[in-house]
Write a protein that binds this DNA or RNA. Structure first.
Lengths: 205, 205
DNA sequence: CTTTTGACTGTTGTTATATACAGTACACTA
DNA sequence: TAGTGTACTGTATATAACAACAGTCAAAAG
């Protein structure tokens, strides 16, 4: 899962931006020019200054003039809400970022990489309601019993995973829905990730 | 809901600490001595320095020597996980902070004030499973249909709220549990808050 | 082929910031 | 009643940090 919020940053600029993000998460302070320079091995802090100017010009950060550590991220740090997936009949998930939720990825274990809003009632017996947001850890590995984000062609669905030899069963947690059976010899099944957490918002509607 | 993480801070020191927290949340940068001084109307930045030393000595913050804005909170900013409440038969909730979860209170609407881990299965049909963490907005007001944290004596429970005149019905979302009926003329019922969100962790157990 | 842009080195002036030192006033404790 | 801690004012200074200016070099754009 790429972490690209960028508009049209150069690879180097993206690295600088990532370093700023990391500074904020680890030290809860933005870096100084000198710290950036030393982290990247620059001989001059001005190299960092140039990069910051470029990032500011491209709108990725804003610079507080005259303020020590005056680097502000324009993006909110948090997890990208990637799309909406129908937990019932599989409808495609939009592959672009809809929103960012200010949630610490390390809140979940293993780390959450992105979020997915669930539509429909097919996972209701697993306590996943319509509108719930699932925290997903990106992985192509899944073990039986895990709730996975699976892609068959360009249709994405959230189901409980069960493998029997070459047959994979994607089980809805709702007795009104029948399991989806996939023979991995004939059809391509991609595991996009596994659910590691859930966030329910707007309980007071 | 008190925000007391403090050990034995003076009122003034708590104010300074709160200002640092606020700076971090609003500007995502700790304040400088001069900023603290000007916010509190100090004529000298050294007053701020003294307070920071006191806070560091008492373990509330750490100071990075020689670093601009080198103030680090020892506490994690986030929501206090206040206790564990059995959603089934009402067991008392421990009134002290067990843990802090790094969650933005503004993630939920209205704002979450504290968190409560739910034990038991009584709310399972509302999609609240054993071990789920409820985000609670502190209020004594509740309207019918809301999921509330209610206290009867020193027993705390999570149920769906329904008032009929002086009778309050606390309804479990599980057909195996009977509603709790409280006559507010005889018994004291305190609404501690309403559920505004839910976080499910450890889905991969 | 010239110009622009990205990615730097190297230097320097200015100001933002931390921090030490000296002192005042007041409340609380031994 | 001397001592200690809190809560400041006021001054001073070293340095952390920003930010401007002058370059170099290579790759991409026009």
């Amino acid at each position: 899962m790429k972490s690209s919020t960028a508009t049209n940053l150069t690879p180097r600029q993206s690295e600088i931006l990532a370093f700023i993000r990391n500074s904020l998460e680890v030290f809860s302070v933005p870096p100084t020019r000198a710290e950036i320079a030393s982290a990247f091995g620059f001989a001059s802090a001005n190299a960092a200054e140039d990069h910051l100017r470029a990032l500011a010009r491209k709108g990725a950060i804003t610079l507080e003039s005259g303020s020590a550590r005056g680097i502000r991220l324009v993006e909110q740090l948090g997890l990208p809400l990637i799309g909406t997936v129908a937990a019932g009949s599989p409808i495609l998930a939009v592959e672009n970022r809809l929103d960012t939720m200010r949630i610490d990825p390390a809140l979940f274990s293993p780390r959450a990489d992105f979020l997915l809003r669930v539509r429909g009632l097919s996972m209701i017996e697993a306590g996943i309601l319509d509108g719930d947001v699932l925290a997903i850890h990106s992985t192509s590995e899944a073990t039986n019993g895990q709730i996975v984000v699976a892609r068959i062609g360009d249709e994405v669905t959230v189901k409980r995973f069960k493998r029997r030899g070459t047959m994979v069963e994607l089980i809805a947690e709702n007795k009104d829905f029948k399991p989806i059976l996939v023979n991995t010899r004939n059809e391509t099944l991609t595991i996009e990730g596994v659910a590691v957490g859930l966030i329910r918002d707007g309980m007071m509607r």
